[in-house]
């Protein structure tokens, strides 16, 4: 039996009065690559924002590695934050710092490593995402794919147990995007980090996902869960099979 690392129970999520996800429950197991997918506006990003604690749920519970995120005091919340790393869609590197400084930021803050060791460690982190030689570059001087990788290096700076990815392939060319997928698989294998990815890139889903959940706008809940390849070939739900086989809505287009 694998350990459950994220447990979501009866989560009602939304902004203010507007409910976007109504009572969803799922588990994420330790060490797996878990993908949240769905069409536009189905609440993927909303779910992610709740999982990383940016928004408090309307009701329901989110338990991350044994700690309840939804009803946590400040101390527990900080403890949970140390266990997670997030790669934002636009990488969200601080523009005034070099890549090395960006990656070193959390390490300096949360460990008491000597300064020269931090530099070696940062070098290793950047090596791990194939960015060696770019330590002194500013985020504005590198390409989108490199920014994502640098953002990934920063997200993994403290070797968190769980990494969250918001649309990792958005805005990348297929080659770079496939490279990032490989990097995700590789890191998952060597570090055993649990990865939670929000995306709707089919190629990427089939390449990396161990298990997916699919959200739906109309039912405001989960309409499918499981292995993406199995869902593609065997799902009875018309919308699910439409999504995985990339067919348009009837009546869309000429």
């Amino acid at each position: 039996m694998r350990n459950v690392i994220i447990q979501v129970r009866d989560l009602v999520a939304g902004y203010g009065e507007e409910v976007i996800l109504d009572g969803i429950s799922f588990d994420v197991y330790e060490g797996e690559i878990f993908v949240v997918l769905g069409g536009s506006g189905c609440g993927k990003s909303t779910l992610l924002k709740h999982l990383i604690g940016l928004i408090k749920p309307i009701s329901g519970r989110i338990i991350i590695d044994g700690d309840d995120l939804s009803h946590s005091d400040d101390e527990t919340f900080q403890k949970i934050l140390r266990k997670i790393g997030v790669l934002y869609q636009s990488a969200a590197l601080l523009g005034s710092l070099t890549l090395a400084e960006n990656v070193a930021l959390p390490i300096e803050e949360y460990t008491d490593l000597p300064k020269d060791s931090i530099e070696t460690l940062v070098k290793m982190k950047l090596n791990l995402v194939n960015l060696d030689g770019y330590e002194n570059h500013l985020p504005s001087e590198i390409s989108g794919g490199m920014k994502k990788r640098a953002g990934l290096a920063r997200a993994m700076a403290l070797n968190p147990k769980i990494l969250f990815f918001d649309e990792p392939s958005a805005g990348l060319d297929p080659v770079t995007s496939a490279g990032l997928d490989n990097l995700i698989i590789h890191l998952n294998k060597i570090l055993g980090t649990t990865m939670v990815i929000v995306t709707h890139e089919l190629d990427s889903i089939f390449a990396v996902a161990h298990r997916v959940i699919m959200l739906d706008k109309h039912t405001r809940g989960i309409i499918a869960e499981g292995d993406p390849r199995y869902l593609r070939d065997h799902s009875q739900n018309p919308f699910v099979s439409q999504f995985f086989n990339r067919r348009p809505d009837p009546g869309a287009g000429p």
Partner: peptide
């Protein structure tokens, strides 16, 4: 050993410095 390989342990020996240009 695999981890050391992945992190290029053998190539990490030169002194690295991030002195600002």
């Amino acid at each position: 050993a695999q981890m050391l390989e992945v992190l290029h342990f053998d190539r990490l020996d030169r002194k690295i410095s991030f002195e600002k240009v």
